[in-house]
């Protein structure tokens, strides 16, 4: 982990580090410290003073049914986004991998939705399912199904899941296809000679060999669903109806900026910080293991 050859001096390296250290201190460590500090206080209604409450904010949060509901919502939401986007991507990648020629063309056709911002994806899907002008909701109406994600909690959840998974398919497809193409063809051919059919080969050989990619994508997609889907939720449902799509990150925003409940918002930030920490450790542990393969 260390270079054998290094340069002498200490002033130059400190100057080189300075920009990053200053920016990190001002915009990262100080705010993160503030979040932890504020989570231990309740500001009075006029915002003039802070009352120390220790872990009171946390106790309150963990007993708050709305917060617990938001935890459950986040779990369901990220679970669904992960399964939908990875399932669709794996299906497409397996098909593309079967082609001798042309898999590159399909890759070009499939990767670019990755570039579409979650918030823009939200607007596109909102437009399709809009209760007044949406094309898809109109045709559903013809079929006798009355689509209304503004009132129906299940439909609202379904819509934000699909909108969040859509651009993510590209990303997962890219990694699955690379993983599939790295599997030696000879292994699969050997199984084919033994008479194993496609589905048997996939289940017993391909999928197990793909498991490092799958596990990696699992972690990355959960992190994505937790933190990067704010734009989708904000554009489509604003957390509603009745908080049915209020994921944790959305709640930090709505309690902190809309509700001005700073103590609670800070405590929520700290809880999220712990969640990110755990996910990061899982990811690093896994990567370490992958290096030893």
């Amino acid at each position: 982990m260390e270079k054998r050859v290094t340069f002498k001096g200490w002033l130059l390296p400190l100057c080189l580090l300075l920009p990053q250290v200053v920016i990190t201190a001002v915009f990262f460590f100080y705010p993160a410290g503030q979040a932890i500090y504020q989570s231990l206080f309740i500001p009075d209604p006029f915002g003039l003073s802070m009352r120390f409450v220790g872990l009171g904010n946390f106790e309150y949060l963990l007993g708050d049914p709305y917060y617990r509901a938001s935890f459950l919502t986040t779990a369901i939401f990220s679970g669904l986004v992960t399964v939908v986007s990875m399932g669709m991507a794996l299906y497409l990648a397996v098909l593309a991998d079967r082609l001798i020629k042309g898999s590159g063309t399909y890759r070009t056709l499939l990767i670019w939705p990755y570039a579409v911002a979650p918030a823009v994806a939200g607007v596109l899907w909102l437009f399709m399912f809009n209760t007044r002008v949406g094309v898809v909701s109109w045709y559903l109406g013809i079929l006798g199904y009355d689509w209304n994600h503004v009132l129906n909690e299940t439909e609202a959840m379904g819509l934000v899941v699909v909108a969040s998974s859509w651009g993510r398919v590209s990303y997962n497809f890219l990694f699955f296809l690379a993983g599939l193409q790295a599997i030696p063809k000879s292994v699969i051919e050997a199984a084919a000679i033994d008479g194993a059919h496609f589905w048997t080969r996939f289940r017993t050989i391909v999928f197990p060999l793909l498991s490092p990619t799958t596990f990696f994508l699992l972690v990355v997609n959960i992190v994505y669903a937790f933190f990067e889907t704010f734009g989708v939720i904000h554009t489509i449902t604003s957390g509603g109806p009745q908080q049915a799509t209020t994921i944790l990150v959305y709640k930090v925003y709505s309690d902190g900026f809309v509700g001005q409940d700073l103590g609670s918002s800070a405590a929520q930030s700290v809880i999220l910080l712990i969640v990110v920490g755990i996910l990061t450790i899982v990811q690093f542990k896994f990567i370490e293991r992958r290096v030893h393969y």
């Binding site: 270079k3 290094t6 340069f7 002498k8 001096g9 200490w10 130059l12 390296p13 400190l14 580090l17 990053q20 250290v21 990190t24 990262f28 460590f29 100080y30 705010p31 993160a32 503030q34 979040a35 504020q38 933190f227 990067e228 704010f230 990150v249 930090v252 925003y253 902190g256 900026f257 700073l262 918002s265 800070a266 930030s269 999220l272 910080l273 990110v276 920490g277 990061t280």
Partner: peptide, 30 residues
Amino acid sequence: IVYFKFPGRRLFFWLIFLTLMLPVEVRIVP
């Protein structure tokens, strides 16, 4: 970090890498 040896190098290393963990979404209010 890679090409110099100087006092506090490890400390800076870890201070910088701690930031890998925390997206801006989590610390928005402060």
